[in-house]
Amino acid sequence: MRSVRIWFTKKDTAKYISHLDLTRCLIRAFRRTDIPLWYTEGFNPHPHLVFGLSLPLGVEGECEILDIRLDDESYPNESVISELNRVTVPGIEFLKIAEPQFKPLFITSGLYEMKLSSNDGSNIKDDILNKIESKNILIYKKTKKGEIKEINVSEHLTEFNIIKSEANELHFSFILPAGNDFTINPILFKDALLENFAQENICWSIKRNKLLLKDGTEFR
């Protein structure tokens, strides 16, 4: 048995696949290939799949991570990727495979890209940039105990960079905490930025481009 780490995308319509559904979808994808996936032993054998960090529903991923175990150690890495791409669904593309360097619990943040635009041509840019400058972007998170906790996203937001800016369109990248201990859902961040606009009038897309370690280097 040997462990391998696989990088894949989750884009377009695939961004609407929930994490639970993604697990089932990928297990079925493996079952359509000849990849010798290792199954747990016991009464109810099932494959062993570990994900880097789940994506919120509706957010795209450029570098999603999946760890699996192979039963046959000699099975070539390239074949894993080509086999999976042979049977995959639209939006999920398998990019590369390597030996895992770090454990997923070392992931601390994510590098995101967000595109916001208004359908009705209204000016959203100024409002959003004012919010960023105010350093006071509040979101409300439910804790495990069921309490509502207020978080100021500005205290955690880093590397905010504007890529494209027009009155009715704003495109930027940023880093937010994402990991085992503390995560800020970028959709909540988006909602806070757009609190003055009706949801139906806004087109948005969020993409997670990288998962990062504490020192800011890429998780691998």
Binding site: A14, Y16, S18, R28, G58, V89, I202, W204
Partner: peptide, 19 residues
């Protein structure tokens, strides 16, 4: 359609694109 999907429960029911 894209703009309303984030507003509904289990949007994967309306996207198509299944295997």
């Amino acid at each position: 359609i894209e703009s309303i999907l984030p507003l509904v429960q289990k949007p994967a029911r309306y996207t198509g694109g299944e295997l």
